[in-house]
Write a protein that binds this DNA or RNA. Sequence first.
DNA 1: CTATTCTAATTACACGTGTTAGTGACGCGT
DNA 2: ACGCGTCACTAACACGTGTAATTAGAATAG
Lengths: 350, 350
Amino acid sequence: MVQKKQITSQDVALRAGVSRTTVSLVLNNKHELSQISPKTAQRVFRAAQDLGYVPNAAAQALVSKKAGVIGLVLSRSHHQISSDVFLTQVVDALVLEAHQNQMRVLLDVLEDHEDQNSYQRLIQARQVDGILFSGPRTDDRALDLLAKTDFPTVLMGGLPASPFYSVDVDNIQAAKMATQHLISLGHRRIGCITNATPVFTAAADRLRGYHLALQENHLPIDDRLVRFGDFDPPSGYRAMQGLLSVQPNPTAVFIASDVVAFGAMSALHDAGLQIPADMAVVSLDDVPLSAFISPRLSSVHLPISQLAQAAGSLLIDLINGKRPTRKQIILDTHLVIRESCGGGQGRNSQ
Amino acid sequence: MVQKKQITSQDVALRAGVSRTTVSLVLNNKHELSQISPKTAQRVFRAAQDLGYVPNAAAQALVSKKAGVIGLVLSRSHHQISSDVFLTQVVDALVLEAHQNQMRVLLDVLEDHEDQNSYQRLIQARQVDGILFSGPRTDDRALDLLAKTDFPTVLMGGLPASPFYSVDVDNIQAAKMATQHLISLGHRRIGCITNATPVFTAAADRLRGYHLALQENHLPIDDRLVRFGDFDPPSGYRAMQGLLSVQPNPTAVFIASDVVAFGAMSALHDAGLQIPADMAVVSLDDVPLSAFISPRLSSVHLPISQLAQAAGSLLIDLINGKRPTRKQIILDTHLVIRESCGGGQGRNSQ
DNA sequence: CTATTCTAATTACACGTGTTAGTGACGCGT
DNA sequence: ACGCGTCACTAACACGTGTAATTAGAATAG
C-alpha cells in the first residue's frame, strides 16, 4: 500500500513559479474573467500536464459544496432487483448523461429490511448532489420527509400526487392499449397477470388500465381472472397456473410485465397449450429479449432509455438551480405487434 | 434551493457542552481507548441524535484519505452493456458487500471512444478507494499503467498473466464441459457460436474449451462451424443463420452465452427447425431466464453472485491493507441439464 | 507540603481546494 | 508631482473533520 504521494496544486504552483491561487484560477478557466496573462496560463497548463495533476475530489467537494455525484437509488428487494432487465439501460443512459456534465453516478440499493435513513445519510453527508429514485413505493415514509427539504430529487415511476419531479409513462393508458388490442382481435374473456402487488403504483395503474378497457367495451369483470405477479418469471408461472384453473379458461391474457410473461408462457407450454392458438398473450415493457423468444412477444414498448435520460437531465437541471415548470414528464408508449396474439389479419375467437 | 444549514460537529459540541474533539472521539467509538467519562459520552450521543447530525463525507474523506467508496468500472460498449443480464446481480451482490463495510458503490462505464484516463481520474482524484474492473479487454493500455501503482484493484473476468488480483471461472473448462455433454449424447458434428470476438479473454477461452473437447474425442475441427457472436441476441441470430448455410448442418451447437443463444434459437425457430430434434443446443452462463424459455435451455451455470461477492470481499481486503496470498480466485461451474439438448436418456444422432 | 501520576478533557494543526480582499507595479492624464 | 485606474498576481481565510500534543485539575505517594 505504498500510495504514490498525492500531487497538489501547490506542487503545480511551485513548478510554474506562481502562487497556488493562480493555478486554481487557470485550471478552472477563470483566467479570462480574471486578469492572468496568457504566458502564465500556458506555464501553468504545462506544469499541471507534466505532473499529471488531478485535483482532489474530496477537497473540491468540501469547499465548493458540490459532490459532483448523483445518486441512483433503487428501492427494491433482493429477488426483485436480480430480475430487473431494465437496470442496464437505466445505468447506461444515466452515466452518459452524468458524464456530459462532469458528474459521476453513485448507486445504492434500498432493501426492505434496511433502515430508511440509508439514503438520508447520502444526502445529509452531502455525498450526492441529487437523487434519482427508481421504483418508489407508496409506503415509503422517508420520502415524505425528503419532500420537505427540497433536495434535488427525481422519481422514475411516479407516485400519485407527490410533490416530486417525476418521469414516467402513462401506465393506465399503456395497459389499456394492450388490453384493447386483445379485445379488437375478438377476445371476450381476457385474464390479467399483474407485474407486482398493487403496493407499487405502476402495478396498480396497469391493473386499472386493464379494467378500464374491459369497461369501455362493456365486458364483464371477473376477479378470478386477475392474478398477481411478483417481478420474476416464477411468479408468472404460478400466476398462469392459477389462471388455468379457472373454468372456462380465458382465451387471452394481458400480462403487465415481459419478465413475468416469460414465466407465464412457460406455464402455458408445460400445460400443452399453444400461443396464440389456445391463448393469446400481450405484455408490457418490451424488453429487448421479447423479440427473440418464440413465439415473439407482442408488447407495449416502454422507452426506458429515454426515460432514464430525461430523468437524468431533469435532475441535473435541478442541481444547477433551475426550476422547470413542468413537474411531471410523461413519455409515450406504443404497442409492438409480434406473434403472441395471433395474426394482424384478425382472429375471431369464440 | 434553500439548502438546510449543514449541521456540523461544532453544533453538537455546543449542545453537549463539550469540545468538538470530544464529539469526534465519542462518535467514532474512540472514547473507550481514550478517557471519556460515560456520562459525557451519553450527552454527546444525545446531542447528535437530537440534531440529526451526519458527518460531512467530503471532510471525512479529505482528512482520513479514505473516500469510503468503491468503484465498479464496466468496460463495455453501448450495445454490449444494454444486453448485459448479469449487471443486476453483480450490482446487488457488490452493494451488499459494500454496505457491510460502510462503503458505497460508484459506477462508471468505459465507452470505447472515451479517453482511457476516465478511471485514472477516479483514482487520482481519490474519489474511490479501490476499483472492481468488470470485463477488461486485452488491449486496454491504461491497465498496464494501473498495474504499476499498486492501487487496490480486482478484475472480474481474468486477464491472462496479469499482475492483478482477479476473480473468475475457468472458462475453458466450462466450455469443454458443455461441448463434452453434446459429444456424450452422440453428436459428432458440433457447431460453436462464441459470445464475443476473441479480443475478449472470456470469448477466446470458451472457444478454446470447445476445441479441446473436440480434440480429446478425436473429432475433426471445421472452422466453418465456428461463428462469432457479439453479446446480444441479434448477433446470435445472424451467427446461427451462417451456421445453417453450411452443408451438412451440424446436429448440435455450443453457444458460449445464453443471451446470444436466445437469438440463435430464434433463428432455428424461424428456419422451421426443432430443438433439440433437429439441433441440440447447449449454452453457457445460465441466466435466470434460461429456465423459462421453451425449450428450457441447458446451460453451464456461472455463479455470478458469488463471483461478485468474492470480488467485492477481496477488494475490501485490499483496501484495508491485507495482502491475500492467492492472486486468483476461480469458482466452480456446473452443467444444468434441461430440455434443449434432448433427454438425459441419451440420444443417438446421425 | 511537594512531586508524581492519572483523569478528562481541550488547543492547535493538518488535509487540499475555491475565493475574497488586497497589494505592488506601472502607465497616463493633468 | 499626484491621483487614478488597470494589470497581474498573492496572502489569507473558509470548508468540516480526525488526531497528536498539551493542559488543568484531582488524586495519590513520598
